[in-house]
């Protein structure tokens, strides 16, 4: 069975007008090849979007862990979240729990940037999600994601 886990990260972003907004994602990651995971889950970045389905990749390389997620805005636009951690032995805890993040449009223009963090209080559930027999978190997340995908697809984009 391929390696998998569920991870939640949260933070604050700042848009082009200088206004802050909260962001969070909860992702189920499934290893597809060495160093790469496919991720699917839920992302919330109001006012760009309330909780919405997102999907993308997580790449683990030497010195970096990079997330690339695609998600729909409430206006039906495609948006992308790119975020990277830079693990460091000099600051292991901070480097593994903090990452800078950017949201871009289809054109590549950055519309917001900020920081996301992994909260240590989530560590037990995160650690448990790696265990082969523990699938409840991923199943619950998949259920909510599918529900939202149906809702989003019946919205303006589908009409």
């Amino acid at each position: 069975m391929p390696l998998s886990f569920v991870e939640t990260m949260r933070g604050w972003m700042r848009d082009e007008r200088g206004l802050d907004f909260p962001i969070s994602f909860e992702l189920a990651a499934l290893r597809v090849e060495r160093g790469r995971f496919a991720v699917r889950g839920l992302i919330a970045a109001p006012p760009l979007t309330p909780e919405a389905p997102g999907r993308g990749t997580l790449d683990i390389g030497v010195g970096s862990i990079a997330y690339h997620l695609e998600f729909p805005s409430s206006a039906g636009q495609r948006l992308y979240l790119d975020a990277t951690k830079h693990p460091s032995l000099l600051a292991p805890l901070r480097s593994m729990t903090h990452m800078t993040a950017t949201i871009t449009e289809d054109s590549g223009r950055a519309i917001a940037s900020g920081t996301m963090t992994f909260q240590l209080a989530d560590l037990p559930s995160f650690a448990a999600s790696w265990l082969p027999g523990i699938r409840s978190a991923r199943l619950a997340l998949d259920g909510r994601r599918r529900q939202l995908e149906r809702l989003v697809l019946t919205g303006p984009e589908a009409r």
Binding site: G11, W12, F21, P22, S24, A44, A45, P46, E51, Q119
Partner: peptide, 14 residues
């Protein structure tokens, strides 16, 4: 109003 909950998705209301 903007809330980053300890559990669950971030949300905002205007």
């Amino acid at each position: 109003l903007q809330v980053q909950p300890r559990r669950g998705a971030a949300f905002a209301c205007e």
